[in-house]
Design a protein around this nucleic acid. Structure first.
Lengths: 159, 159
DNA sequence: TATTGTTATACTCTATAACTATA
DNA sequence: TATAGTTATAGAGTATAACAATA
């Protein structure tokens, strides 16, 4: 716990809530779709993992099962996700994006990409490289047990 | 909006919610104090800005006035903050930390510092420097209208 | 007995609209 | 009329505990 780690901790605690709010507010108020960050991440995950279950999602989002169930309730109510019976295990629920969900994700996704890119373009490209590198480093320490994503998958996230 | 900005946007959107959750969960479950991030930030602000009003706080946290009022309700109910009449303007509320609030902040603060520092120490110090630099850059673009803090103030945040 | 998911309950965070009191 | 704050209302996110159904 040297001085640099403390300085770093301070900077993280200053910047992260600020970014979270900026991103969340933007996603709730632009792009005509009005998704929260967890909703957005859910749709993203379901697009990448067809046939995922509630448990799969809970593991990915790192939130409790009942919370996920409620999150899905909301998306089902908005017609973006379907709950389907699992082929062989009748305890499981298979989740699927609807067409509405697919379009909502696409729109929200473009809006988020545009917003974040615009904000980040205010930085010189060398700083942007620093930010990208820092984000990868942070992700590795804050989610150390996540298996590395298959090549190509990550690159699709905001494509 | 070049490729680097998009790559960067992707990385931010991957890493920021993850960190937010990790920090929030830790603050809610450790250190014996159980503060949410907004509560923590509120106490921090009140320690640095004695005599602040609800509006001052709303501006700093970038949330709506009624939300702040409720946030303060919660902290008052827990005995951490006092609402006091303003000396000259009877519309205003002057907020003050109680002794309980001061101690809660101190404890939560040490726990947060310890947790974040521990996590960040898993990075080589060169990466930590990158992270610190990135956080400063991000703060500048996500809160571009904030006046720069007076020298010394920032350094106290986690002291 | 263990796993998957839901319901019940209870917080916190956040917003907008409508209101009160004061300036 | 404009500002500071509160109350009312509403929806999202999250958790734990208790439960049902299935394996």
């Amino acid at each position: 716990m040297d001085a640099s780690a403390m300085e770093c901790a301070r900077a993280v605690l200053d910047a992260v809530p600020l970014m979270m709010r900026a991103i969340g507010t933007h996603m709730r108020t632009h792009g005509g779709v009005n998704l929260s960050i967890p909703q957005f991440r859910t749709l993203l995950f379901l697009r990448q993992h067809e046939g995922a279950s509630i448990s799969n999602l809970a593991e990915h989002l790192e939130i409790a099962l009942p919370s996920v169930s409620k999150l899905i309730d909301g998306l089902v109510a908005r017609g973006m996700v379907r709950r389907q019976p699992h082929a062989t295990d009748r305890r499981r629920v298979t989740l699927a994006l609807t067409t509405v969900g697919r379009h909502a994700l696409q729109a929200s996704h473009e809006a988020a990409q545009h917003y974040l890119s615009t904000v980040l373009t205010r930085l010189p490209s060398s700083e942007r490289a620093t930010v990208a590198q820092a984000m990868r480093a942070l992700q590795s320490v804050f989610a150390p047990d996540r298996e590395p994503q298959p090549a190509g998958t990550r690159a699709e996230v905001l494509t």
